[in-house]
Structures are given as structure tokens and as C-alpha cells.
């Protein structure tokens, strides 16, 4: 398998011998314990979100990825809530019940994180050079440079990066760049008790993920697929995701887009050609209208 690489023109740290590192998040082994969220907050010194059920119809109390939440275990309730945005009632596990607690189809968990895209929209958008590509081909935001312009936020097709209201700077997962430099695995992967979050050299990780999907297919879970890795050329998500996922439902069920590309790489050339063309046309048009008025 060939590893997708970012364009060499990016602002990047180079170090001989370093290789692409990534996350493989296997949603079939996630138990929704949120240990990764806690470990991430502890290592990166991020404030808590508070224990409020803020999403209607869900037991997830984190909400979403944000400037202060760099790992987020998304709870996807496939239980049908009884009308309105209420929490679905979970039947008692003792005695008679028709809901099987062991059935993973009733409740999906997915530990969401920055995708560290090969074609990263946030990195392409950043006007200050605060967002850079590291030697591990991850995308890191340098908090000492970011001036909080907010352009990376609508440029991320996955809705990852966000600006902190009080702090004023954007922030997101660093794939524990500080730990990587010391040869340690990221805090979330270290904390994950079921190894739903796996970390390693990209090539190895993809190979393992593919074998995992093959095993699931062998077992009859034919809906399992990899989101963001191993795709055919031209079909990759944002050029291939540094942090990819094993999913069993359609991506939209987890709040992920079915297709994604760095908006800069997709739209910049047509938008600029149309815009600058119209600008020149306008300048010429104004001069023509002025001259026309003279002659009359």
C-alpha cells in the first residue's frame, strides 16, 4: 500500500527518519467510557465541559469536538426516542426486556478526533502559518502564533477546529506532538482500555485496520468499512485521513461527511478566476460607461 503524503509546498517540519503516524479508531470495540476524553484533557491541560446532557435525544454530555475538547466520544443512539427530543428510555436489564444490552447495534460509540488530513483545509486556510505539518505528517496549531482570525473553522469539512470564546485562539488535537517527540504514544490511545483507539506508523495501522475489516466481514458484519484509509486513488477523503475510522453505519450517522476535500484545493482556482475576471471586467466596464457618457 502506498502512504498518501501531503504536498511538499506546505509549511512543514522535516526531520530525517520520521514517518507518518496516525490513529486508527475502531468503533466496534469502543465501549463509550470516555477515558480518552479525560486523558486528553489531563495531558493537554484543557478545562472540563461540565456534566450536562446538552444534546436532545442523546446520553452524550460532551456535545461535540471543540477548542477545549480534542477527543469526543460520540454516542449514536439507534434506540427510537418516544416522540420529541427526549432521552430514549433504557429498559431495565433484569427480568423481561426486549432490548439486548450486548447488541452493539442498539448504541454506537465513536471516539471522534481531528482527522489530520493529507489535504488539510485548516492548514491551507491559515493566513498566519500557525497551522503547520509536522515531521509525523500530522497537523498542529501553534498557539503562540494563532491570532484567532477564525478562517480555519469554516474551512474544515469535518467541523473539528474551533475558536475558544474566552481565549480567542483556535485549538484542536495535536496528535500529542509533544509526546510523539519523546517517543510516547498519544494520551488517548494510551488510556483506551479496549484499544478502540490505536496509534502507530501509518502503513502498519492501515494494514491492521484492513485485516480487522476482513475479519468482521468473515464474521458476517458486512456493513463494516474503513472511513478515510485504503481508498482507491481519486476516492480518498481529503487525500486520505491521518486519523481514520472503522464504521458500521453510513458516515452521516456519526456526523461525518460522505465525501470531503480541502475547500482551498477544491474551490480556490475556479473562485479566483471568476472573481478576478469579474473585477477586471468591472474596472473596464466603469471606464467604458464613463467614456460613453462623454461622447453623448
Amino acid at each position: 500500500m502506498s502512504i498518501p503524503h501531503a504536498a511538499p509546498t506546505e509549511i512543514a517540519i522535516h526531520r530525517p527518519g520520521a514517518q507518518r503516524m496516525g490513529f486508527f479508531t475502531d468503533t466496534t470495540t469502543c465501549i463509550g467510557c470516555k477515558a480518552c476524553e479525560v486523558a486528553c484533557k489531563q495531558w493537554n491541560d484543557l478545562p472540563a465541559d461540565g456534566s450536562v446532557f446538552r444534546k436532545g435525544g442523546s446520553y452524550d454530555h460532551t456535545g461535540s469536538l471543540s477548542a477545549n475538547t480534542w477527543r469526543h466520544v460520540r454516542f449514536v443512539e439507534t434506540l427510537q426516542p418516544e416522540g420529541g427530543p427526549t432521552l430514549p428510555s433504557i429498559p431495565p436489564t433484569q427480568g423481561q426486556h426486549d432490548w439486548d444490552l450486548r447488541d452493539p447495534g442498539s448504541w454506537l460509540f465513536m471516539s471522534d478526533v481531528c482527522k489530520h488530513c493529507t489535504n488539510a483545509g485548516c492548514l491551507d486556510a491559515c493566513p498566519t502559518g500557525a497551522l503547520i505539518r509536522t515531521e509525523f505528517e500530522t497537523v498542529v496549531l501553534q498557539p503562540d502564533i494563532c491570532n484567532g482570525c477564525g478562517y480555519c473553522i469554516p474551512s474544515c469539512p469535518f467541523g473539528v477546529v474551533d475558536r475558544d470564546h474566552d481565549d480567542g485562539r483556535a485549538a484542536k488535537c495535536t496528535l500529542c506532538y509533544d509526546r510523539l517527540e519523546d517517543g510516547l504514544e498519544p494520551a488517548c490511545a494510551k488510556a483506551c482500555p479496549t484499544d478502540s483507539i490505536q496509534f502507530g506508523p501509518y502503513e502498519e495501522l492501515v494494514d491492521r485496520a484492513q485485516r480487522r475489516v476482513t475479519r468482521l466481514h468473515e464474521k458476517g458484519r458486512s456493513s463494516a468499512y474503513l472511513y478515510g484509509a485504503g481508498d482507491a486513488p481519486g476516492e480518498e477523503l481529503a487525500g486520505g485521513l491521518g486519523a481514520f475510522f472503522l464504521l458500521t453505519e453510513a458516515p452521516e450517522r456519526y456526523g461525518l461527511p460522505a465525501q470531503a476535500q480541502s475547500p482551498e484545493q477544491e474551490n480556490l482556482v475556479p473562485a479566483t478566476l471568476a472573481g478576478v475576471g469579474a473585477g477586471i471586467l468591472a474596472a473596464v466596464g466603469v471606464a467604458a460607461a464613463m467614456a460613453f457618457g462623454r461622447r453623448r
Binding site: 461535540s64 469539512p157 477523503l237 458516515p251 452521516e252 460522505a258
Partner: peptide, 16 residues
């Protein structure tokens, strides 16, 4: 999973 018709249910937040 990623092409063709979308699934019946979408559970956001899709983007910021």
C-alpha cells in the same frame, strides 16, 4: 457506504 443515496437519519453536528 460513502456514495449513492444518503442514509435516512443524519445525526450532527456536521460542521462548525
Amino acid at each position: 457506504a460513502r456514495t449513492g443515496d444518503p442514509p435516512k437519519i443524519v445525526q450532527g453536528q456536521m460542521m462548525k
